[in-house]
Write a protein that binds this DNA or RNA. Structure first.
Lengths: 270, 270
DNA sequence: AGCCGGCTGCTTGCATGCAAGCACGCCCTA
DNA sequence: TAGGGCGTGCTTGCATGCAAGCAGCCGGCT
């Protein structure tokens, strides 16, 4: 069909190369199929449990079966798909327990990153960079317009990315990437944006900001245990966040990946 | 070349299905290539940094390029290979820092599993099973013959596997699988067996046994923090283990994956 | 009438041919 | 003699054809 440059860019495992996957992507058919397919899945194009046959996808994505298979395999590793023992893949379903575990685990891993940063000592320069980001956030916390929210989300992501960078541990990095790529666990982007419409919980942002401050302080003073527990508790804000959003099914329904959520029949798991 | 049954059996992400990958494997060319290739890499057939071209491997493994590519991709996700941005893969190298991080991270994750088990409550039945394993270990701790060591290793693996099972958290499970598949992080098998020849450190086994006992007790009494910290410290035994083994380069050289180790020029990192 | 067995179409696994990039080296030129 | 440009071969990315399994159905046999 098309002919394009070779050049792969396989995937995760950030060694030195920061590899924000979204950056260099779109080069190979594999990447294209992978990103587009993920988009389709998260947008609710397929029901959880639905089998993804190759041929329909070939037609839909314009790539041939070979790169498509690679993309499917990648998405399985990512955790969005589940492979059947007889061959083929189905869309995974996520329960509230899954998400809650993911968030907790994210806290554990970010906590470890923070602890490493504290224990191993972090150059003043890096800490200043973190503080700069956080100061910028401070300006935004009390604003309620949508643009400020977008900017907040961006800064927040930068903060977290830089934080795990401080741990200087490729493995922690990798484990975290595997977690935050799951539907609601990379809560930063999706959940917080949703809040733009739900001022009832904006105070969470104030708390988050404070957490970040304390975190920097703890790392600076090389208080590893403190840094770890702050980061853990900080992650749990995402859970609180999720609970707020879950009470507004209209907002929830618009979040990417919402369709993969296994909704409890009635009564939200307290 | 050959014709064989289709039937995939893609891979990780233990949902409910315990999927000891080694069990059902060997069915598809992909799996065959993947396992064989991993074996080759760990046995030191390729130097770290060496590029793995497809065609030579095709010849060597007997599978054609298509399944081989899938296998390579899987091994990249596993962390044994690193993808080049221009395409192709190279064998990864592991520094002592990598391994030490991996072990620490394993402790963090097993600690989380133990905490979950404690916090969420674990049926008496499961605890009894754990205790049974550990009692069997008790018999072996003081024996020094090789068979006892093998049996010990097996029981130890069962214990750890059952423990993470108790957490009932697919995500924790998956994260752990990603860690223990790395060369020296799944310390149980390789390192401990090496010790069979290094009685100077057999007392580590005594400590490990005690850790397991305490762990069970903590979970039973629902002491989450205690369980977590025991599991963490327990993992650090593997580090001590590694240090012992590292002092005996002859034993070290026979361990799978030893060739992937980036040896410090001189002076072991204290 | 019910059950079992073979057939048919669909789906995935696998092999291979082809094209594009890239790196190396050679040759030509200044 | 040194430098640069072009060609050639190697390597990967991609597409597609073919075979084997599996499920569902229909027909025949009991």
């Amino acid at each position: 069909m098309q002919r394009r440059g070779g050049i792969t860019l396989p995937s995760p495992f950030g060694r030195g190369e920061g590899v924000r996957v979204t950056a260099n992507a779109e080069k190979t058919q594999i990447m294209r199929a992978r990103l587009r397919l993920r988009e389709l899945i998260l947008s609710g194009e397929f029901r959880p449990g639905e089998r993804l046959a190759e041929l329909p996808l070939v037609q839909r994505l314009g790539a041939s079966r070979t790169p498509l298979r690679l993309a499917l395999a990648a998405l399985e590793h990512e955790g969005l798909l589940r492979g059947l023992k007889g061959g083929g893949y189905v869309v995974r379903e996520f329960t509230l327990a899954d998400i809650s575990d993911a968030i907790e685990l994210r806290g554990v891993l970010e906590g470890t990153a923070a602890r490493f940063a504290a224990e191993r000592g972090t150059p003043r320069r890096e800490l200043r960079a973190l503080r700069t980001i956080n100061d910028a956030v401070h300006e935004l916390v009390h604003r309620t317009d949508y643009e400020s929210f977008e900017r907040y989300v961006e800064l927040n992501e930068r903060f977290h990315a830089d934080l795990v960078e401080l741990a200087a541990s490729p493995l922690v990095n990798r484990a975290l990437e595997a977690i935050v790529s799951l539907p609601f666990a990379g809560a930063s982007s999706a959940l917080i944006l949703a809040e733009a419409e739900l001022p009832e919980s904006w105070e969470i942002l104030v708390i988050a900001h404070r957490d970040h401050q304390s975190l920097i302080e703890a790392i600076e003073r090389r208080q590893g245990a403190r840094a770890e527990s702050i980061a853990r508790e900080h992650a749990r804000l995402a859970l609180a966040n999720l609970e707020v959003v879950m009470r507004h099914t209209d907002v929830l329904a618009r979040l990417p990946g919402a369709s993969l959520l296994a909704l409890p029949r009635d009564g939200v798991h307290a």
